[in-house]
Design a protein around this nucleic acid. Structure first.
Length: 951
DNA sequence: CACTCTGCT
DNA sequence: TAGGTAGCAGAGTGA
């Protein structure tokens, strides 16, 4: 027989890969670095050798490695770290998915299996490559059996190769003598004792004189020098035993035939699913297009071309009276009009973007006198009937106008019990034509589509199944909840992602290309098909995890009011920004000049690398602290150097001013639309804790701490003749902590409405309330914050600029003052460790896989997460409830005021002057009673003619 | 594309 | 042992 076989020592290579590849986790929190490294090593070897056969051997159950014992810093033995252990079944599953022949047999170790197969294959005339990290295997090397030992170094994998001669060259002995070598010198990592006192040098010397251990003992008298002779004499039993231990069997009884080891098609449907699950993006390209298309072939999509077909489809749909209908859509970002310079952005389950030329979506023909514009490119609808899923796609503008499509969608929402979508908020935008938007602005009391009263809104909420939000609740750690993710996670189905089908191309481009039509149809079909089918499983899962109420009563309404908020936007004065930009530019140029003069040369101040060299090498300033790539020049480091050199304050000011200019003064105007308002996006499925995040632009990080930056808030105004009311929770997280922990001292302090930091200081430092010094109060405040974040003495020390010891003492004293908090926080960690997740008051979960890490840093992080998430998350839940209630109350009371921004513990409301008092009352009431806690929720409401004044 | 830095709560 | 405050978005540099 001709050809080649590659044999792999599974555990050994997995182990190598684990320590050679930096920690990787997929979004489920599974550790994947060893699997990844293993596949890379294996694929590299297969690419190189192009063998006909492949087999991987594993020990059956082997939590510890025989040869490469994991050791901690003291060198003591430990079991396999958890992160590695969990990857053993993963790699096996992956290899099975690839169709690779695995061999495991009770009672045999992997190297015995490999030895047996290697010899057998050699006998049959094959070239053998035996891949292992274990040098014991060298005993098997021959001219036809090559032992390959991979080394994972940074920059790739290098492999050492050994045929007979290579072993001789390197060790001075023949491969079979490796056994004798181990017999004499032993192997500490392997529990092979060897002969006491004999190391590698001596052993090799002996083996050069006598070919085997047995020979050496047969001629023991001839062994020199005396010392060696004596050692051997004493260690005879050990030597014989050790040699036996070191011998790899080559005669195992295996159910193994070469035929089964033929290399399969590694890149098939199953392994594709697995690679996607583990998120090995670089491996995806190994799977060819065909494979990917095959995976989705069974999805039957009707491509509707005429109005008649469309009507027919819906007739059948309504006739079947399905309880659930999936809806998918392809669209630009709804706010593209007037914002054409922005870059392409992804949003929700689809690609959303804005144009960079004059093209502005699809214009429809006139309806009445008005032009209605919808940024739809096409939609799809799915429903099941008679055990079959029917999916239809239609492109806007082909047979139906967008207006007709939207009308149909509205009817669908009214008629059908459950509408399943990915990204309902975006769908709402696309169903609200721009024309209605502008009318909204003028009328400003009229609620837009689709529900004009709170009752109607509530009915609507019960119908919406937003799979994106649901999937987020089930695992908030993932970074996308796109259609392929949902299909994989809840339907065990592999479908093509947008990126796989279209790469980075935007929908507008695809729309122009005739050749992309099929792929677009397929993708569009998935967008309704997948939510429709996944709804059942996802709902069940949410109910099982007690999150259905959270989903229904908090998240869905939140999505709706976020939609309204985005739709409305907030006024921004572009002229003020332009003026600020010019004035900042002047400041920057002055600072540049000063800095160059002080440094004695010109350089890029924005480059931390160049700056570090200037400060710490050229100017020899002290306290140089290095990061991975150079010196740290962060603000807290520079702050400590403030008095060392006049250049430092200049640099800090430069940083501040350039940030203000680039991010805000120059960054914001791009987002001002034709209506004079910024319609930022509020994302509901980003944060791990349940907070909302803000992008395009980020309206949640507008400066406030520094006066110069704070001026930017004057840019944000209510519309003409209206005012802003800004409502702010006071210390919501600490109050949540008081409630959740039930600590009587803290609760008491809040009930008495005391200055909480002062109160804490007085108790912690045992001084009377009035005698608390500023420093004490500051320290207490920092500890209070630290507690909320999951304190560490190290971090607190940094924060307070005191030693770790002192910080530790503060914490200790704090916990003495509030013992219930200590108990509570410990309980949180314990609970998260047991359950695997942390939970908020309203049932929101956050998985904490880090808690089971063997890495101290990871584990500590997990502990902080376990302490912080319930607190931050509960506060996030509360403000969502507040936002919902405020929005509903405003509508119910017939008021025109609208929420325009949410900044974690703050709501900014645009209000007609005459409504001010009513609105203020509503904000105070609804926010304060969004949740009933053991302590009052205090709300501060302020009024102003811009955001600067109101906050 | 990773890293550093800075803005907010 | 060395090293970390929690949660985000965006700009800029440099490989």
């Amino acid at each position: 027989m001709d050809g080649k076989i590659v044999l792999i020592d599974g555990h050994s290579i997995l182990n190598r890969a684990f320590y050679g590849v930096p920690d990787l986790t997929n979004s489920e929190g599974l550790h994947t670095n060893a699997v990844y490294g293993f596949l890379n090593i294996m694929l590299k070897i297969l690419d190189e050798e192009k063998p006909e056969y492949l087999t991987v051997a594993f020990d059956v159950k082997h939590p510890t490695f025989r040869h490469e014992m994991y050791a901690d810093y003291k060198g003591t033995r430990k079991g396999m770290p958890e992160e590695l252990k969990e990857q053993v079944p993963l790699i096996q599953e992956m290899l099975r998915a690839m169709g690779v022949r695995l061999v495991m047999k009770e009672g045999y170790e992997a190297d015995d299996i490999l030895g047996t197969i290697a010899r057998q294959a050699e006998k049959e005339g094959l070239e053998v490559s035996l891949v292992s990290g274990d040098r014991d295997l060298l005993q098997l090397a021959t001219d036809r059996i090559m032992i390959r030992i991979p080394k994972t170094k940074r920059g790739g994998t290098e492999i050492e190769n050994y045929h007979t001669q290579d072993v001789i060259d390197k060790y001075g002995i023949t491969p079979p003598q490796i056994i004798d070598l181990k017999g004499l010198m032993g192997d500490a990592s392997d529990n092979i004792p060897g002969v006491a006192g004999v190391g590698e040098k001596t052993a090799v010397k002996v083996l050069t004189a006598f070919p085997t251990v047995e020979e050496a003992y047969a001629h023991l008298d001839e062994v020199t020098p005396k010392r060696t002779h004596d050692l051997l004499e004493k260690g005879r039993e050990q030597a014989i035993l050790s040699k036996a231990l070191a011998t790899i069997k080559t005669d195992c009884e295996l159910d193994y035939s070469l035929e089964e080891a033929h290399i399969p098609e590694l890149f098939n449907e199953k392994s594709f699913a697995m690679v996607k699950r583990l998120e090995f993006k670089s491996l995806l390209k190994r799977f060819d297009k065909k494979q990917q298309e095959q995976a989705t072939k069974h999805l039957q999509i009707q491509n509707l071309k005429t109005k008649e077909q469309w009507q027919e489809f819906f007739r059948h749909l309504y006739q079947s009276n399905p309880s659930i209908v999936g809806v998918g859509f392809l669209a630009d970002h709804w706010a593209s009009e007037g914002a054409r310079k922005k870059k392409a952005k992804k949003s929700g389950g689809q690609l959303a973007f804005v144009f960079d030329d004059g093209d502005a979506g699809i214009m429809e023909e006139h309806t009445g006198d008005q032009e209605k514009e919808y940024p739809f490119y096409g939609i799809s609808v799915s429903y099941s009937a008679e055990d079959e899923v029917h999916t239809a796609c239609i492109m806007a503008g082909e047979a139906l106008t967008s207006a007709e499509i939207v009308a149909e969608l509205r009817k669908l929402v009214e008629t059908i019990d459950h509408i399943a979508v990915l990204g309902w908020k975006d769908m709402l935008h696309h169903m609200t034509p721009i024309e209605e938007l502008s009318r909204e602005h003028e009328a400003a009391g009229q609620d837009g589509f689709p529900a004009a009263t709170v009752e109607e809104q509530k009915t609507l909420f019960t119908k919406i199944a937003d799979l994106e939000i649901a999937a987020y609740l089930l695992n908030p750690l993932k970074d996308t909840y796109q259609v392929d993710d949902i299909a994989r996670d809840y339907l065990d189905m592999t479908i093509s992602s947008y990126a796989e089908l279209f790469g980075k191309k935007r929908i507008a481009e695809l729309y122009e290309e005739e050749t992309q039509k099929d792929a677009m149809m397929q993708y569009l079909g998935q967008l309704s098909f997948v939510p429709c089918l996944a709804y059942g499983a996802v709902r069940e899962e949410l109910e099982e995890q007690d999150m259905w109420q959270l989903y229904e009563e908090i998240e869905i309404p939140t999505a709706y009011y976020l939609y309204q908020m985005e739709r409305l936007g907030v006024c921004a004065d572009g002229r003020v920004l332009t003026d600020m930009s010019a004035s900042l530019q002047g400041t920057i140029e002055g600072l540049e000049k000063d800095i160059y003069a002080l440094a004695g040369e010109e350089f890029n101040i924005n480059s931390p690398k160049q700056l570090g060299v200037i400060l710490f090498e050229k100017m020899k300033l002290p306290f140089a602290k290095k990061t991975k790539t150079g010196y740290s020049t962060s603000a807290d480091i520079l702050d400590k150097l403030r008095s060392e050199d006049p250049i430092i304050p200049k640099i800090l000011e430069y940083r501040q001013v350039t940030k203000l200019k680039s991010t805000y003064a120059d960054g914001l105007p791009v987002y001002i639309e034709e209506d004079g308002r910024i319609h930022g996006k509020f994302n509901q499925t980003i944060t791990a804790t349940g907070r909302i995040s803000s992008t395009d632009p980020n309206l949640q990080n507008i400066p406030i701490r520094m006066e110069l930056g704070r001026q930017l808030r004057k840019v944000f105004t209510p519309r003409r003749n209206w005012v802003f009311l800004d409502a702010d929770y006071s210390q919501i997280e600490l109050r949540v902590l008081a409630h959740l922990s039930g600590d009587p001292e803290l609760i008491e302090a809040y009930r008495e409405n005391k200055d909480i930091h002062r109160s804490t200081a007085s108790k912690v430092f045992h001084v009377s309330f009035d005698e608390v010094t500023d420093l004490q109060r500051r320290n207490a405040k920092a500890v209070n914050f630290g507690i909320v974040y999951g304190i560490s003495s190290f971090g607190l020390g940094q924060d307070l600029n005191v030693s770790r010891k002192e910080a530790e003492k503060f914490i200790e004293q704090y916990f003495e003052t509030y013992p219930a908090i200590k108990t509570y926080l410990d309980g949180l960690v314990e609970d998260a460790r047991n359950k695997g997740y942390a939970k908020t008051m309203f049932g929101r979960r956050r998985p904490v896989p880090e808690l089971s890490s063997s890495n101290f840093m990871q584990r500590s992080f997990g502990e902080r997460v376990a302490m912080n998430s319930p607190i931050q998350g509960t506060a996030a839940d509360i403000i969502k409830i507040a936002m919902i209630r405020v929005s509903q109350k405003l509508l119910e009371e017939g008021l025109q005021a609208k929420v325009v921004l949410q900044v974690h513990d703050e709501l900014l409301v645009e209000t007609p002057v005459e409504e001010t008092e009513k609105v203020r009352e509503i904000l105070e009431q609804e926010m304060a009673h969004a949740a009933e806690l053991a302590v009052p929720l205090e709300v501060e409401v302020e009024e102003g003619s811009n955001w600067y004044e109101a906050h």
